[in-house]
Computed example of a mutant assay.
Amino acid sequence: MIRHLVLFKLDEGVERDDPRAVAGAQAFRDLDKAVPGLEFWECAWNITDRPIAYDFAINSAVADADALKRYIEHPAHQAAAAMWREFATWVIADYEF
C-alpha cells in the first residue's frame, strides 16, 4: 500500500470562504467517488490556527505505484489540482506502509 498525503497552504489574502477555495475543497471531497482504485480517502480543512499549520489536507491510500499513477493522471484529479493552483501551494509525501 502507498499512503498519499497532501497539505495545502492558501495563498496570501485567500480565505477558506473564497468561492475558489470552497469549490476546490468540494472537488477533492468528490474524488473518492470519481477515481477508481482509491483504497482510503479523506480530506478536510485544518482545525487549528497555528502559524506553521497548513490549511487543507488529503490523506489517502492506493494499492501500489500503478494505482498512484492512475490516480494522479485521472482527469478528475487533474481538474481538482488545476483549481487549487489558482489560489494555493502544496507539499506531498508518498510512502509505502
Results as ranks from 00 to 15, higher is better:
residue 79 A to H: 12
residue 64 D to Y: 08
residue 94 D to S: 09
residue 33 K to F: 00
residue 52 I to L: 08
residue 91 V to T: 10
residue 15 E to G: 07
residue 64 D to P: 07
residue 3 R to K: 09
residue 58 I to R: 04
residue 96 E to L: 04
residue 81 A to E: 13
residue 55 D to P: 00
residue 15 E to I: 05
residue 36 P to L: 08
residue 84 W to F: 15
residue 40 F to R: 15
residue 66 D to V: 09
residue 29 R to S: 09
residue 84 W to G: 09
residue 11 D to W: 00
residue 80 A to P: 04
residue 93 A to F: 10
residue 9 K to I: 01
residue 16 R to V: 09
residue 44 A to G: 15
residue 87 F to W: 02
residue 7 L to F: 06
residue 93 A to N: 08
residue 4 H to M: 06
residue 5 L to T: 11
residue 66 D to C: 02
residue 12 E to C: 00
residue 25 A to K: 02
residue 50 R to L: 09
residue 62 V to H: 12
residue 51 P to H: 06
residue 80 A to L: 04
residue 24 G to N: 04
residue 87 F to M: 09
residue 76 A to I: 03
residue 78 Q to E: 13
residue 35 V to H: 01
residue 62 V to P: 03
residue 55 D to R: 00
residue 75 P to W: 14
residue 61 A to D: 06
residue 96 E to I: 05
residue 70 R to Y: 01
residue 14 V to F: 08
residue 32 D to L: 05
residue 18 D to M: 04
residue 65 A to V: 11
residue 97 F to H: 11
residue 3 R to V: 06
residue 76 A to D: 14
residue 32 D to C: 10
residue 3 R to Y: 08
residue 26 Q to W: 05
residue 23 A to F: 02
residue 59 N to M: 09
residue 56 F to R: 00
residue 31 L to K: 01
residue 50 R to N: 07
residue 76 A to K: 05
residue 44 A to S: 14
residue 58 I to G: 02
residue 61 A to C: 07
residue 22 V to R: 14
residue 96 E to Q: 07
residue 48 T to R: 01
residue 77 H to T: 08
residue 74 H to T: 11
residue 14 V to W: 01
residue 53 A to C: 14
residue 60 S to P: 03
residue 62 V to A: 11
residue 91 V to R: 02
residue 90 W to K: 03
residue 38 L to P: 03
residue 73 E to L: 15
residue 22 V to N: 07
residue 73 E to V: 08
residue 11 D to S: 10
residue 13 G to R: 14
residue 82 A to I: 06
residue 89 T to P: 01
residue 32 D to G: 11
residue 92 I to Q: 13
residue 66 D to I: 02
residue 59 N to K: 05
residue 55 D to M: 00
residue 75 P to E: 15
residue 9 K to F: 03
residue 53 A to Y: 10
residue 56 F to H: 00
residue 18 D to V: 07
residue 12 E to N: 04
residue 4 H to I: 06
residue 29 R to G: 01
residue 70 R to Q: 12
residue 1 M to A: 11
residue 92 I to H: 08
residue 34 A to K: 13
residue 76 A to G: 02
residue 66 D to R: 10
residue 13 G to L: 13
residue 57 A to G: 15
residue 14 V to P: 00
residue 2 I to L: 15
residue 80 A to F: 05
residue 76 A to F: 06
residue 86 E to L: 09
residue 55 D to S: 00
residue 20 R to P: 03
residue 42 E to C: 05
residue 72 I to T: 14
residue 64 D to K: 08
residue 9 K to T: 14
residue 97 F to K: 09
residue 51 P to R: 06
residue 91 V to D: 11
residue 93 A to D: 08
residue 53 A to P: 02
residue 23 A to Y: 03
residue 29 R to P: 01
residue 16 R to H: 08
residue 49 D to H: 07
residue 61 A to M: 13
residue 83 M to T: 10
residue 28 F to D: 03
residue 28 F to V: 13
residue 9 K to E: 13
residue 83 M to Y: 06
residue 67 A to W: 05
residue 12 E to R: 03
residue 28 F to S: 02
residue 58 I to T: 05
residue 97 F to A: 12
residue 66 D to K: 12
residue 44 A to C: 09
residue 34 A to T: 02
residue 10 L to K: 09
residue 16 R to L: 04
residue 65 A to H: 07
residue 75 P to H: 12
residue 29 R to Q: 14
residue 45 W to T: 02
residue 8 F to S: 06
residue 66 D to E: 15
residue 7 L to H: 00
residue 26 Q to I: 12
